[in-house]
């Protein structure tokens, strides 16, 4: 187990190094300058370039960037009055994490319940509903669901606040639902298929023949075992939450990471984009690491296979 964790950690470090290097190199060749303001004279532009060290050779810039990273510094924003990127990200973390966690919890609870009902009552209304939600979840982008909800519930019917407001829990409902939709879809489908497999398995037959009642079998044996592999979709789920957050946060004006990313893309704010990329990757990598270790603990077969549950 120790060796397994060490190997996973090593991969994580290599991946981070790769992300830092690639993103840094790519950004060096990025077209457009952050100082595109027409009011700047060429002399001022040269001064600005010098101040931010934009004219140094690439290796020097890279070394500076990496050493800054070790101090937890992600550089300064070009656009927003020299703000520290790490401060900007930290300030926006709470809103994103809040909406993201809400979506994750609501989405997976609803998804698991829906999946259980669908598996137990196959070909019923709930089963068809689950299938439909699963298809819609992968077909209709979160920004479509989000903006339609905003238009109908927020603008037309005016029953929910249009814009996110930190102090108002009701205003988080719509962004949460918009984000949770894909979570519900993935969890419900996964849970259903997993549970159907288990219900048809020998040990459930055995449990029944032992004389256990229906609900005992389902709760103690089937559902508990079906929940284990659901852990593995946490990784892909994080990705879809991060991806979804960018558009959902833009729609509902959530002052979060995704919103910051969109603004910085539109402004060519190099260091912010780079910093965000790094933070997103770190978030994803840590979730995957935790899931891998958890799963390795739960199911020893994974460890023996070298920890590669993709195959």
């Amino acid at each position: 187990m120790k060796k397994y964790i060490l190997v996973r950690l090593l991969y994580m470090v290599i991946a981070i190094a790769l992300i830092v290097s690639i993103t840094f190199l790519l950004l060096q060749f990025m077209p457009g300058s952050p100082f595109n303001d027409l009011q700047l004279t060429p002399e001022q532009r040269v001064l600005l370039d010098e101040k931010y060290g934009l004219n140094d050779p690439i290796p020097v810039k890279y070394a500076r960037y990496v050493s800054n990273l070790f101090h937890g510094e992600l550089g300064t924003s070009f656009i927003f009055n020299n703000q520290d990127v790490s401060d900007m990200i930290a300030a926006r973390m709470s809103s994103s994490v809040r909406v993201g966690l809400q979506a994750l919890v609501c989405g997976s609870v609803i998804g698991v319940l829906l999946g259980i009902v669908a598996a137990l009552k196959r070909n019923s209304f709930w089963d068809h509903l689950t299938t439909i939600i699963a298809v819609i979840g992968v077909s209709i982008p979160a920004f479509v669901i989000g903006s339609l909800m905003q238009y109908y519930f927020g603008v037309k019917m005016a029953i929910l606040p249009v814009i996110y407001d930190k102090g108002n829990a009701v205003s988080t409902i719509m962004p949460t639902i918009a984000l949770a939709f894909s979570v519900i879809a993935t969890t419900a489908k996964y849970m259903r298929n997993e549970l159907v497999d288990i219900i048809n398995s020998d040990y459930i037959l055995f449990a029944r023949s032992k004389g256990l009642t229906g609900s005992e079998v389902i709760i103690k044996h089937a559902v508990r075992n079906a929940l284990i592999p659901v852990v593995t979709i946490l990784g892909p789920m994080t990705i879809s939450l991060i991806t979804g957050s960018t558009v959902v946060e833009r729609i509902f004006s959530v002052p979060g990471l995704g919103n910051l990313l969109v603004t910085s893309i539109q402004n060519n704010d190099y260091f912010v984009i780079l910093g965000e990329g790094l933070v997103f990757s770190l978030m994803f990598l840590s979730v995957v690491l935790v899931v891998d270790i958890l799963y390795g603990l739960i199911d020893p077969r994974i460890r023996l296979a070298g920890g590669n549950h993709n195959e």
Binding site: L18, G277, F280
Partner: peptide, 12 residues
Amino acid sequence: LGSIPDLVVMIL
């Protein structure tokens, strides 16, 4: 490579 989020790679 797969452990880098798609979104980050595509945006960059």
